[in-house]
Every structure is written in C-alpha cells, then in structure tokens.
Design a binder for these strands. Structure first.
Lengths: 237, 237
DNA sequence: TACCCGTTATGACTTTTGTCATTGTTTACT
DNA sequence: AGTAAACAATGACAAAAGTCATAACGGGTA
C-alpha cells in the first residue's frame, strides 16, 4: 500500500499549527477545520498530488519534507519550492479552482493532513483574518517567485548555486550542533532548483569544496565558510 | 512638471473597470472606492512608483501601458510584467504592508488613478467577493511567475524570445487591422524580459525576420507566421 | 559477500550566449 | 529642421554552460 491512512493529529493541539497560516485562528473558527480532515503517510519519493489533476482540498504537512515541482520541456523537472512541517500546499489550485499547476513529492517519509475544499472555504468565509493571512501568504510566495525570476534571468550558475545552498539552509536549518544542512537532495534535484545540468552542479560543488566554502558528505552539504558563501551568492536584496 | 494631476474619471462609469478586479463589485461597495481617489498623468518614461519606497495606496491604470521591473545585479533591470488599462498595480506591497519590491514606469503617456490604502481596505473588509477576487488575482500572478521560472531555467534564448513575442501579442494585441503588436519596446526592454544581452535580442530578431516569422519596423514587431512562431516558442503548457 | 543499479565524478568537446568595439540609424528635444 | 544622445546593427572574440562518453562509487538486497 502506498499511502497508508494515518491517525489524524488534532489540529487544536498540532505543534506545527502555530507557525502556520492557521496560527491566529480563534478556537471557534478552528473547530471548523478538523471536520472530515484526513491524514496520510507518504513514503519517501511518493507523490502527494500531480500537476494537471483536479484538487479536492488542500494539504497541511504534519511531518516531513516535500518538494513542489513543475514538469518542464524534455522531461526535465523544475523545483519551485520546498515545504515542511506546518506548511500548507496545494492552496493555489483550490483558490483558483483549477488543476494543480505543479506536483508535490515527499523527499523523506512524511505525514500530511488533508483539508477538504468545503471545510476550508467555510473557514475562509467566516474568518476575514484567514483571508488576509492567505493573501499575505500569496504575496510572499509571489515576491519570492519574482526574486527567483530575476536571479534565473541574470545570475551566473556559480551565484545561483551558492544562493540555493543558502536558501536550503534557511528552509531546513542545520542538523543539531552542526553546520550540516538538514536535507538530502540528489545532485539532480539541486540542478532542478537552479536550472542547470546535473554535471554542472557536481563540478561546481567540487569547486566550492576546493575553495573551502562547503564540505560534502554524500548528499549532505555542510557550510564551512558562511561569509564567503554569501559573497559568492552575490545577494543584492 | 512631471506628474500633472488629472481630472479623476468616475469609477462608476469607468469603462476599464469592467475588465478589472473591481468588475463584480456592487454599486454599494463601489461607492467606497472613489473617496479621496486621485488621478495623475504620467509622461512616457516616468516613474509611478519605485522599488524600496513605501506604498500608501494602490494604482489603477486608466489609460496607457506600464512596465513593472526589478533592479537586478549590476544595474540590469528585469521586467516582471506589463500592465494596461483596467489593471491594478502596487497591490502586493499594500497587502503585505511592505515596501514596493519592484518599480513601475510608463511605457507611453498614461493616466493612472490612485486609491488610498484605507479606502481599499475598507472595501476589502466589506466585500468578501473582492477578497476572493484578489486572491484569485494573486494566484494567477503566481502561476504566471512560476511558469516563467521554468522557462528561464530551462529554455534556450530562441524559444524564450519567441514566447515573449507571443506574450506581448496576448497582452497588448494587434494594432487595428494589422498583425503588428500594439506596443513599442526597445531591444533592451525585450532583453530585460527574457534575461539576456541586448545584442542577443537584436541578432535573434534579425534571424526571426530572415526566417519569415516576424517583420520589423523600428520598434514595432509584426507577426508574419504565427504557427511557426508558436512552434519556435516550444510551448508545452 | 558479491552484485547491481542509480548516482556521482571527470574529461573532452561543442554549443550557446555574452562582451567589446565600431558603425550606422532613430528618436527626442530645442 | 537641426543636433545630440540614445538606440540598433554587426563582427570578432571570449567565456559560460551543456552534452556525451566513460569510469568509479555506494548502499541496499539476493
């Protein structure tokens, strides 16, 4: 069996919720949410939803890491963003009532709750705060996307890779008491973040290592010289 | 004088409104809008708002064409999108209560109305329809931005330029009874859409002309062979 | 343990795209 | 209408990044 049903955690006591878009909901509004809420276990590598299919609700990640990506030309994926505990995904398709424009796959074993469309819209209707929160989430995503457009359009590979590493660090943090980024991505995944060939990523990572910016250990990346790495990324915003 | 005040058109009778995000507002809600609304005339090339400055309202384009762009590294601009009659701009900054993350400049003489933050939020508060409309506008922008990310990351220049021409056609349409796209952009502007050097755009446009995809007349581009152009763009979504 | 498959690594080479220099052409302004 | 400044065009060259081929690694499984 691929997606095992999983005992749904209680939203009211979910520790992820406090960092999520639902954080400021009153308990009154919140009670609307868990109605019919489902929860599934996804094994690493398995798909939560697929580009082109129709959504019937949105997903809230209880545990695990997820990549959101689009299928580009000639079968090459483009990773748009990552999601982790407390993040909601698939809300764009729900709000616009259109098929998913991207796919979501678990990067490691994950537990993901499902909130049916109707429950969600009920809360949205009742809570202007949630509506505003959603708008702010959307504006934030949009701003991030626009920054990425500028970078893909203008920055050389070396800078994009350095920045990608920094963003992975911001998103997933370090493993406890280390400077090792807490996520495992293949070189191909990394290539699909910054829009380049796998070989180019491999070569550049080796260079970064030689230049003592990072340390490599299989798929784990450790940041050795954060300052130099930031400089290499040539960040201007 | 740079931005002459301009007699504000009446929102209730504004022909642009019906294609805008305000289209479905009842007249009751609408009456909130024109309160304190201002209107300015911007000469071609002049700035409506600048990246980094703080917003105090949003803008609704009554007439004219506008480019929205970010300043990238080494002084190179990146055009994010265009706006025309009936479009609102600067709403992202208002919703997120942050400085503008991009600048807006008139591409031709333009008349742009200004809706103060407070008026806007008043209507937003009263009208769940407008809130939903805004969310849908945001999701649409986000989807467009994500498609652009994939294209900038994966497509070669030739395809990106062909697609840019098609998008310009979609956005601005043809001049009456012609196949000439109704907008004048410098080669540099075009380069700043697709993220390349001006010289590359010049060279590729000449190629497209040689290949009988387009015709060039100063800054005006006419589409000669739409089918081939679409094929050249290699669109897959 | 040994094997196997997906991944990582590296080299040689090609293609694409950018940069610089120079010249010709428009545009916008007075 | 005249003029300066911005823009467009083109060539020669350089740099960046992609492709292809091949080899080595590595971790899970029979």
């Amino acid at each position: 069996m691929i997606n095992k049903p999983f005992t749904a955690p209680d939203c009211a006591s979910c520790t992820s919720r406090h960092t999520s878009v639902f954080a400021d909901l009153g308990t009154g509004d919140l009670e609307k949410l868990p109605l019919e809420k489902g929860c599934n276990f996804y094994k690493s590598g398995h798909t939560i939803f697929s580009e082109g299919s129709y959504p019937s609700g949105l997903y809230c990640i209880h545990k695990g890491k997820v990549k959101i990506f689009k299928n580009g030309a000639e079968g090459k994926d483009q990773i748009l963003r990552f999601a982790k505990e407390g993040d909601i995904i698939g809300y764009k398709a729900i709000l616009s009532d259109q098929p998913y424009s991207a796919s979501a796959t678990a990067l490691e074993d994950a537990v993901v709750c499902f909130i049916p469309k109707k429950s969600y819209f009920d809360v949205l209707q009742l809570s202007p705060q949630l509506a505003l929160k959603m708008m702010q989430l959307l504006t934030h995503e949009l701003k991030t996307a626009e920054t990425r457009i500028v970078e893909l359009a203008q920055k050389p590979l070396r800078e994009r890779l350095a920045e990608a590493i920094l963003i992975l660090k911001e998103t997933f943090g370090f493993e406890e008491n280390t400077t090792t980024i807490d996520v495992s991505l293949t070189r191909e995944d990394i290539a699909n973040i910054i829009g380049t060939a796998t070989e180019s990523v491999i070569r550049l990572l080796s260079e970064f290592k030689k230049d003592k910016l990072i340390e490599l250990n299989g798929r784990k990346i450790s940041i050795v010289d954060m300052k130099k790495l930031i400089k290499t990324a040539n960040i201007d915003d």
